[in-house]
């Protein structure tokens, strides 16, 4: 079992290239709104997450994910499925 507390720091580091102003990130950070990432940027970031964890995050699922915590929970569900 992988815990979200282990996943969140990884997501924060993967978000670094999308966070040029180096804003403080946490579980409750709203990724597109607070980092001002456009729709394509979010999808590019999701690809990095998919490859890091070797999981699939369909675009359909991304529509329901706003915060780092929500993404961590989704990643956890995929990791535990395998």
């Amino acid at each position: 079992m992988t815990d979200t507390s282990e996943i969140i720091p990884v997501l924060v580091s993967l978000l670094a290239p999308f966070n040029p102003e180096n804003k403080a990130l946490s579980e409750v950070t709203d990724i597109p709104a607070e980092l001002n990432i456009d729709s394509v940027g979010v999808l590019d970031f999701i690809m990095e997450v998919e490859d890091h964890f070797d999981i699939e995050i369909p675009m359909n699922a991304v529509a329901n994910i706003r915060t780092i915590g929500e993404l961590a929970a989704y990643v956890q569900s995929q990791l535990n499925k395998g």
């Binding site: 999808l43 999701i46 690809m47 699939e56 369909p58 675009m59 359909n60």
Partner: peptide, 13 residues
């Protein structure tokens, strides 16, 4: 078109 299909959508590089 992909969205309209309702299919699972996977984007590749």
């Amino acid at each position: 078109g992909c969205t309209l299909s309702g299919a699972k959508l996977v984007r590749f590089r």
